[in-house]
C-alpha cells in the first residue's frame, strides 16, 4: 500500500532528524552563507562568458545589435549548410527580428525530423559556466535544444550574470512573475561523450555544433579578447 510506505518512510526519516522548528531551520540555512564560485578567466563578465563558451568547445560570434545578429546567423547557416533555413521557437524576440534583410528563412515551432538547425533566444548567460539558460515552453520547445545537428543561441549581453547564484536570483524572480517553467536548461557546449576508452567525441545524442551569438555594445570587443585568452 503506497500510503503505508509513505508513512513508514516519513516516520523513519523523522527518527533520524532533530525535529527543529521551521523558523530555526531557515535561519540556520541563511547563516551558511553563499558558496564560492569559480574564478573568472577575465576582468569583465562578457569576456569571461565567451572564454568559457570557447573552452566548452562551443563556437561564438558577436553583434552590436539585432540586425547584426541576423547577419551572423545567416553567415553561420551558409558556412555549414549553404542554406538559409532554420527552426526557431515561438519567442516574440525572435519573431521581431529582421530576418528578411539577410534572407534567412525561419520556420517557427518545434523541430521536425530532417531539420538540422535550430535557433533559441537564451534567457540568461552564466559567465562562470559558459552556459546559456533556456526555459522550455512555447518560446523554446525542449526538442529544439536537443535534437538538431546544430543549435544556435542568441543572448543579450544585459542578460549575462557572473555566477550560478546570481543566475538563480534572476530565475527565481522570473518564476515569481511567470510561474515555474517545466524545464530550466543550462546548456554549456555541444553534446559529448567519453564513454569509449575515455576518448572525447562530440554529437553523442544532441547537437554536434553549439554556436553562441552575443548581442550588445561591448560584444565584439569582448569576443576579440576572449579569443586571445582561450587561444581559439
Amino acid at each position: 500500500m503506497p500510503v503505508s510506505d509513505r508513512a513508514a518512510l516519513f516516520a523513519r526519516v523523522r527518527h533520524g532528524c532533530r525535529g527543529a522548528p521551521a523558523a530555526d531551520i531557515e535561519a540556520q540555512l541563511r547563516g551558511l552563507g553563499r558558496a564560492p564560485a569559480a574564478a573568472l578567466p577575465a576582468a569583465d563578465v562578457a569576456t569571461s562568458f565567451l572564454v568559457n563558451v570557447l573552452k566548452n568547445q562551443g563556437s561564438a560570434n558577436a553583434a552590436e545589435h539585432r540586425s547584426g545578429a541576423v547577419s551572423a546567423v545567416s553567415a553561420y547557416l551558409y558556412a555549414h549548410y549553404r542554406s538559409q533555413r532554420l527552426v526557431a521557437g515561438n519567442d516574440p524576440r525572435l519573431a521581431a527580428m529582421p530576418w528578411r534583410d539577410a534572407g534567412v528563412l525561419p520556420r517557427f515551432g518545434a523541430v521536425a525530423p530532417g531539420e538540422s538547425v535550430t535557433l533559441s533566444f537564451a534567457r540568461l548567460g552564466v559567465a562562470e559556466m559558459g552556459a546559456v539558460v533556456i526555459y522550455t515552453g512555447r518560446s523554446n520547445p525542449a526538442a529544439n535544444n536537443l535534437l538538431p545537428e546544430r543549435h544556435i543561441v542568441l543572448l543579450d549581453s544585459s542578460d549575462l550574470v557572473s555566477d550560478m547564484e546570481s543566475a538563480w536570483e534572476r530565475i527565481n524572480a522570473d518564476m515569481e512573475k511567470l510561474g515555474r517553467p517545466r524545464g530550466v536548461n543550462f546548456i554549456a557546449g555541444p553534446s559529448s561523450t567519453a564513454d569509449i576508452e575515455g576518448q572525447l567525441v562530440y554529437g553523442a545524442h544532441g547537437p554536434r555544433g553549439w554556436h553562441v551569438i552575443l548581442i550588445g555594445d561591448n560584444a565584439t570587443d569582448a569576443l576579440q579578447q576572449a579569443r586571445a585568452i582561450a587561444g581559439r
Binding site: A38, N52, K55, N56, G89, N90, G109, A110, M129, G130, A131, T136, G137, R138, P141, A142, A143, G179, R180, P181, R182, G183, V184, N185, F186, I187, A188, G189, P190, S191, S192, G206
Partner: peptide
C-alpha cells in the same frame, strides 16, 4: 569545469508548451 547539460525539471507539460 562544466557538464554540457544541467537541467531542472518541475513536472508535466504546461498549457502552452509544444512538447514535454
Amino acid at each position: 569545469a562544466q557538464t554540457c547539460y544541467t537541467s531542472f525539471y518541475s513536472g508535466p507539460r504546461r498549457e502552452a508548451d509544444l512538447d514535454g
